[in-house]
C-alpha cells in the first residue's frame, strides 16, 4: 500500500481543495471533475487557510475525529488533538496518523488542534 499513500502525500501534508472556477465550489479531498459542472467545470488547486471549525465530531478508539468546515465551504474529516465541541475553532497541525507496523512506513498527515479562547 506504499504507492497508495505516496500518491496522495501532497494532499495529506497540506490542505488543498479543488476550486471550480465555473461554479465557485470548493471540494476536499481534491476532485478530478466538478460534480456540479462536470465537463464545463474548471478545477484549480487551492490552499485553504489554516483554520476551520468543528461541524460535528465523535470519539472512537480513544481518538477524536471531527468533520471540520472551512470558510470556503469545503469540509474535511480529520483527527483533532484535544477536546472539542461543535462550533469550536481549530488550527491545522502536521502529525503522525500511524505506521505500517515496526518495519513499514510512517503515515503523516494533517490533524487539527483546538484553539483555546483568549482570556
Amino acid at each position: 500500500m506504499v504507492p497508495r499513500f505516496w500518491r496522495k502525500i501532497k494532499y495529506r501534508y497540506e490542505i488543498l481543495t479543488s476550486f471550480c472556477e465555473n461554479c465557485g465550489n470548493h471540494y476536499y479531498p481534491q476532485r478530478e471533475i466538478c460534480p456540479k459542472c462536470r465537463r464545463e467545470g474548471v478545477l484549480k488547486e487551492e490552499k485553504v487557510c489554516d483554520y476551520g471549525k468543528v461541524l460535528s465530531y465523535t470519539v472512537v478508539n480513544g481518538r477524536t475525529i471531527a468533520l471540520v468546515e472551512f470558510d470556503n465551504g469545503a469540509k474535511m474529516l480529520a483527527e483533532v488533538c484535544g477536546k472539542v465541541e461543535i462550533g469550536k475553532k481549530v488550527r491545522k497541525a502536521f502529525r503522525k496518523y500511524g505506521e505500517d507496523g515496526d518495519f513499514g512506513i510512517i503515515y503523516y498527515g494533517t490533524k487539527f488542534i483546538p484553539i483555546e479562547e483568549q482570556n
Binding site: S56, T58, V60, I65, A66, A78, Y97, G109
Partner: peptide
C-alpha cells in the same frame, strides 16, 4: 479508505458524527 478510514473514522464513527449533528 483514503479519506475517511485513513484518519481513523470507521463506519460507527461516521454515523456517530451524523448523530451528533442531528442531536445538536
Amino acid at each position: 479508505q483514503e479519506w475517511e478510514k485513513f484518519v481513523g473514522a470507521n463506519l460507527p464513527a461516521i454515523y456517530a458524527i451524523i448523530a451528533r449533528l442531528h442531536m445538536h
